[in-house]
Amino acid sequence: MKMLKDLKLRRKYRFLVLRIEGGEVVPDATAPPAAGAPQLEAALPFSDCRYCVYDQDYTTDDGRKTSRLLFISWLPHNATPYAKMAYAHGKTAVRRRMEGLFDVAASAFADVAAALGIEDDEDSDSDLDS
């Protein structure tokens, strides 16, 4: 899959969203390297399943900047049971073609945010600290 090589080696995309269509896994959406979690959230459908490969930049414990690829299985709660079964069953075949990726299972964007290390500021008690 050429788009995956562009993501892994050339860092041409921040993420690649894949869907199953007619028994084949095909690209559904991509984003430029400057994109982030908000663009990923917008690209994931509210009530349908997808696979996603996300290029995450992070800093190691010793201060080095690096990146890793996350393979996200997007199976939202309100997707049809048929879609969930199809994506769960097809995951093994898709993952065989992609080595060295970290697995993330997500049914809500909060699961994706947690995997990306994004803090949720809505539950913060900072207004009460006066």
Rank of each mutant, 00 (worst) to 15 (best):
residue 7 L to V: 07
residue 12 K to W: 02
residue 70 L to Q: 13
residue 27 P to A: 09
residue 29 A to Q: 11
residue 64 R to N: 14
residue 41 E to A: 15
residue 98 M to D: 05
residue 25 V to G: 07
residue 14 R to G: 10
residue 27 P to R: 04
residue 121 D to N: 10
residue 81 P to F: 09
residue 97 R to Q: 14
residue 19 R to H: 07
residue 52 C to L: 09
residue 73 S to L: 12
residue 61 D to P: 00
residue 29 A to T: 02
residue 58 Y to C: 04
residue 34 A to G: 14
residue 57 D to A: 12
residue 88 A to Y: 03
residue 11 R to P: 00
residue 85 M to R: 13
residue 33 P to S: 14
residue 113 A to C: 11
residue 79 A to N: 02
residue 130 S to T: 09
residue 67 S to R: 14
residue 109 F to E: 01
residue 102 F to S: 10
residue 120 D to C: 08
residue 87 Y to I: 06
residue 55 D to S: 10
residue 5 K to G: 00
residue 33 P to L: 10
residue 101 L to V: 15
residue 25 V to A: 06
residue 118 I to Y: 08
residue 75 L to Y: 03
residue 40 L to G: 01
residue 4 L to I: 15
residue 34 A to C: 11
residue 111 D to F: 02
residue 116 L to Q: 02
residue 117 G to F: 03
residue 31 A to V: 02
residue 10 R to G: 08
residue 72 I to M: 04
residue 39 Q to R: 11
residue 91 K to E: 12
residue 34 A to Q: 14
residue 41 E to G: 08
residue 122 E to I: 06
residue 109 F to Y: 09
residue 14 R to W: 04
residue 112 V to S: 07
residue 38 P to T: 03
residue 104 V to H: 00
residue 37 A to R: 07
residue 122 E to V: 00
residue 73 S to R: 14
residue 117 G to Y: 08
residue 48 D to C: 09
residue 121 D to C: 08
residue 20 I to K: 08
residue 17 V to W: 01
residue 84 K to V: 09
residue 26 V to H: 01
residue 62 D to Y: 03
residue 122 E to T: 15
residue 125 D to S: 14
residue 63 G to M: 15
residue 56 Q to S: 13
residue 104 V to A: 06
residue 103 D to N: 12
residue 60 T to W: 06
residue 58 Y to A: 04
residue 27 P to V: 12
residue 104 V to N: 00
residue 74 W to R: 10
residue 100 G to A: 13
residue 118 I to F: 11
residue 16 L to K: 09
residue 53 V to D: 06
residue 50 R to G: 07
residue 116 L to V: 05
residue 107 S to R: 05
residue 110 A to S: 15
residue 74 W to K: 09
residue 39 Q to I: 07
residue 52 C to A: 15
residue 55 D to T: 06
residue 69 L to Q: 07
residue 114 A to P: 01
residue 37 A to K: 05
residue 14 R to I: 02
residue 128 L to S: 04
residue 69 L to I: 07
residue 119 E to G: 01
residue 86 A to G: 00
residue 96 R to F: 12
residue 35 A to L: 08
residue 25 V to C: 12
residue 88 A to N: 06
residue 71 F to H: 13
residue 15 F to L: 06
residue 76 P to F: 02
residue 22 G to M: 09
residue 127 D to W: 15
residue 67 S to Y: 15
residue 104 V to L: 07
residue 36 G to I: 03
residue 115 A to P: 03
residue 25 V to R: 05
residue 88 A to V: 00
residue 108 A to L: 07
residue 42 A to M: 12
residue 97 R to F: 02
residue 97 R to G: 13
residue 88 A to H: 01
residue 129 D to K: 11
residue 96 R to W: 00
residue 3 M to S: 11
residue 74 W to M: 07
residue 112 V to Y: 06
residue 7 L to Y: 09
residue 20 I to P: 00
residue 34 A to V: 12
residue 94 V to E: 04
residue 57 D to T: 14
residue 68 R to M: 10
residue 110 A to D: 13
residue 6 D to R: 15
residue 48 D to H: 15
residue 74 W to N: 07
